[in-house]
Amino acid sequence: MKHKILIIDDDESVLFVVKKIFEECCEVLTASGGEAGLEAIRRENPVFVFLDIKMPGMSGLEVLELLKDTVPAPLVWMLTGEEDMETAMRAMESGASGYITKPFHIDQLRHIVMSAIAARETKRHGGTPPDDKPWHLAQKKTDK
């Protein structure tokens, strides 16, 4: 069975390309905006979620807050432009597993999803997740 991935972004072209990137390996769902995204998470229970930070209406951070008590919690990675670094760091504190800046490299995107899902599978089956090289740990980079 294919893994379910959800992308939440208000930009149609981003939704389209990310869907195309993963459509072979996984079942890809898209949601335009925060409320729709939340809806989709509750209804479809994806294992991995790409969440855009800046959206009209409900923002990425707000979605994260509301996701806090969801079980099982999906893996959430923030999609952010460079101008949003501060918010990305705040998102990590709110439960996001990481962030990637736009425009991103496609291999990186694929690697993130694959290794994150693999790590979760291993944990679920009681093993230790594979060594996460070559990612270096998140740096606390703020603009204040």
């Binding site: 101008e83 949003d84 736009k102 425009p103």
Partner: peptide, 22 residues
Amino acid sequence: MIHIVSHEFNNALTGLSAGLYL
């Protein structure tokens, strides 16, 4: 304004770069 503009640019560039790669 610069924040908004670069946000839009980054979004558009995402579509471009990913589309090209694919």
